[in-house]
């Protein structure tokens, strides 16, 4: 088995891309050139990808890039409170005298990082359930999808609010609340894709080869139906960032001194007419991050789920 495993990952990647038959690994040298050309023709995707890369670098190197790393934590400097942008504080300081730029940088780890974790967790719950329902069909499928419907019947932000309020305000509880309200979307989407693929000839052929049903689901249905789910997940990242910020803004998510963007907006809410930088810069960060992931998702859709373009 070990010999063929390497080819699996490889094939999954290649399979998703409609590479024409003539192109082989031999011209890998021009792969970078082709990628740049591809991006040049898609400014939205290029912009989204660029911002996402910047965000990733910022998150990883926050402690090196931030002028006042301590300000992301418990450091306060009340004598330097509410300084306007400029000088040592390019984006000014907040009520506690903390450097807004440093807090925004560290905030990537919270606002974007936790959102990524939330999406991945939602996928880990939703995709197996949806795959199982779609691949098996019948009564179990009906039962699982009715459960999913119950979750989907509530508006997701409202459901997340209710769960976060019940669990008590904290970063972890907000993340759990979003996962609980989010996974059913992936379960339903995955179920639909898997059910469509289940009728394909290659699934029948796989069963006729004596491959157990669970393995057919994992190796023949999943790789051929995951594309639209990946696309949806990347599009959803923007939405999760917004939801997460909203929960924090309402006091149900991250708590001070955590440098969460939604919380930072809330802390500057009463100062918008006098010291607007306290709320505006973290607000802009939320907007740019959400926009970047949406653009990236749209770009991925064109690549991985071309028929989804007609849906949107």
């Amino acid at each position: 088995m070990s010999g063929s495993e390497g080819a699996v990952g490889d094939s999954d990647v290649r399979g998703g891309s409609p590479a024409p038959g003539g192109e082989r690994a031999s011209d890998a040298g021009s792969a970078l050139g082709r990628t740049i050309g591809y991006l040049a023709r898609r400014p939205g995707l290029a912009f989204g990808l660029g911002i996402v890369i910047v965000l990733a670098v910022g998150a990883v190197l926050a402690s090196l890039l931030a002028p006042f790393p301590g300000d992301a934590g418990n450091d306060t400097n009340l004598l330097g409170a509410l300084l306007p942008p400029g000088g040592a504080h390019p984006l000014g300081t907040d009520l506690a005298g903390r450097d807004v730029w440093s807090r925004i940088l560290f905030g990537i780890r919270i606002s974007v990082g936790v959102s990524v974790v939330v999406i991945v967790a939602s996928l880990l719950v939703g995709v197996p359930i949806g795959l199982f329902a779609g691949a098996v069909g019948g009564k179990l499928d009906d039962l699982l999808m009715r459960i999913v419907d119950v979750f989907l019947a509530f508006p997701s932000l409202l459901l997340a609010l209710a769960i976060a309020a019940t669990l008590g305000p904290s970063l972890e509880h907000a993340a759990i609340a979003i996962v609980v309200s989010w996974w059913p979307w992936y379960a339903r989407l995955m179920r639909g894709e898997a059910a469509a693929i289940r009728g394909r000839a290659y699934v029948e052929a796989a069963l006729l080869l004596g491959i157990p049903r669970w393995r057919v689901a994992l190796r023949h249905i999943l790789p051929n139906s995951i594309g639209p789910i990946i696309v949806q997940a990347s599009l959803d990242l923007g939405g999760v960032i917004l939801t997460f910020a909203a929960l924090s803004f309402l006091g149900l998510g991250a708590q001070d001194p955590t440098p969460e963007w939604g919380l930072m907006v809330e802390q500057g809410r009463t100062l918008t007419s006098t010291q607007p930088w306290v709320a505006i810069f973290p607000g802009a960060a939320i907007m740019v991050a959400a926009l970047a992931f949406t653009l990236l998702g749209e770009g991925l859709r064109e690549r991985l789920d071309p028929k989804g373009l007609a849906r949107s």
Binding site: R14, G15, G16, Y202, H220, P223, N224
Partner: peptide, 9 residues
């Protein structure tokens, strides 16, 4: 062709 899984060589 449809009887061969598209993601597998």
């Amino acid at each position: 062709r449809a009887a061969l899984t598209p993601t597998l060589r």
